[in-house]
Simulated assay, not measured.
Amino acid sequence: MLRNREIRFVLLVMCTISLLLLLSAAFFSISSVILVLLTSVLLIGCSLIFTRMRYLEIEKLSSYMRQISSGDYSLDVRDNREGEFSILKNTIYKVTVMLSEQRTLLQKDKTHLTDAISDISHQLKTPLTSMMVMADLLDDTHLPETKRAEFTRNIRIQLERLEWLVTSLLKLSKIDAGTVHFKNDHVIVVKLIQKALQPVLIPIDIKEQTVTITGDDNVAFVGDLNWAAEAVINILKNAVEHTDSGGSIAIAFSENPLYTEIVIRDTGKGIPRDEIPFIFKRFYKGKYAGESSIGIGLSMAHSIITKQNGTIDVQSEIHKGTQFRIRIYKQIV
């Protein structure tokens, strides 16, 4: 404590004042000298004791901070008494709680990143292994032309699948990182539906499915047309894939003072009740998923819609079809 220059200076000043008072008291009487001496000793002693107590508190706080820096956030130094030390303790406790929460979030992010890398590796491994096998077979000079054409076509299909996977993962990573700036344009829903239907018209035609669209041409919402179309495309792809040939897909949209709603209903296989809570989870594949399914489309649709002040939910019944309900809520000014 006495190594502190400030304390030594204060002690020197107090001793100097006491000495001057003693000299002044000597002009009056011995009793005055004794009174001044006792008073000075008591005041200096109380000051030293008080300073020592504060040093002990600071030492406790220093020990607490060292434990925090080592990763121990379990200590509680809250103090409800008045005083600057109580304020400091409560502030340190708040910072400790914040650091603990941030550490938990970082740990979750690390776990999520590890799981994502594992899932991505698994998704890439399957088509790459398939292409390597077929590439080896193509080296055979005695391979029939029909088989050569078949293997070449399969390799092309796997490459297209890889391209779609990588593109989708890049889009998802941008959304997760918050680097996507969604526009706040006036989106006409009927134009959105027409844009989203374009990529799935060929598979719809091949499976001879019927599509019905109902809704007012003036229905609209504030959002990003291109990203919203990306979400709807993935939902329509899911509907086309799980609806048998000759089935139907119904798209309806409406608007009220609170939100704009888009409902996509199909007559497909349906989703088991126990799978519904997981269908928007990344890389999740249900028991009725096709061989080419990766389990990323609905996850992307969910991320895009929620980022645009919207919600998406699903209702389904086995062998009776599935219904996706999208709601884009209006912004409150």
Rank of each mutant, 00 (worst) to 15 (best):
M98F: 14
N184I: 09
T96Y: 05
Y288L: 14
R325K: 13
N234G: 03
L143F: 01
Q107F: 00
F283K: 06
I262F: 02
L258D: 15
I304Q: 02
P257S: 06
L106A: 10
L21R: 08
K89M: 05
I68E: 07
R161M: 01
L23A: 02
M134D: 10
T260R: 01
S62N: 11
L22F: 13
I117D: 03
N226F: 04
A231E: 09
G223D: 05
R148S: 11
Y329W: 04
I157R: 01
P277A: 08
I332R: 11
I206D: 10
A26N: 05
F85K: 02
D217H: 02
F253H: 07
L48W: 04
Y64H: 11
G178V: 01
L88Q: 09
H302K: 15
R8C: 05
I193N: 04
L105E: 12
M1K: 12
H186F: 14
C15D: 15
P144S: 01
V10L: 12
I30W: 03
E6Y: 07
E84G: 15
T91A: 08
F182M: 10
S86D: 12
E150T: 15
N184C: 07
K174E: 11
D266M: 04
K320M: 14
L113A: 09
K60T: 04
F278M: 06
F28K: 15
L258W: 09
I251A: 07
R52V: 01
G71Y: 03
S62H: 11
D205S: 15
L61P: 00
G246W: 11
T243I: 12
S47L: 01
V41H: 02
L105W: 08
Q323M: 14
G270Q: 14
S292G: 04
A289M: 04
I304F: 08
G247N: 08
L162W: 05
Q308L: 03
L38E: 07
T210R: 07
E317Y: 09
S70L: 03
I155Q: 05
V36A: 04
T141C: 04
R327T: 00
Q102S: 07
Y64N: 05
S63T: 13
L137V: 09
R282Y: 08
I326G: 00
A252M: 09
A177I: 03
L22T: 12
N154M: 13
C46M: 14
E241F: 08
K269P: 13
R327G: 01
Q209K: 03
I328Y: 10
K89R: 05
S168C: 13
V166F: 14
M300H: 06
L197I: 00
L137R: 14
I271L: 13
H242Y: 15
D244T: 10
M300V: 09
K195Q: 13
L42D: 08
R282T: 13
L138M: 01
L106I: 03
S121T: 13
M1G: 14
H242F: 13
H181F: 08
P127D: 00
D266V: 05
F151W: 09
A229T: 11
I68C: 06
E160N: 05
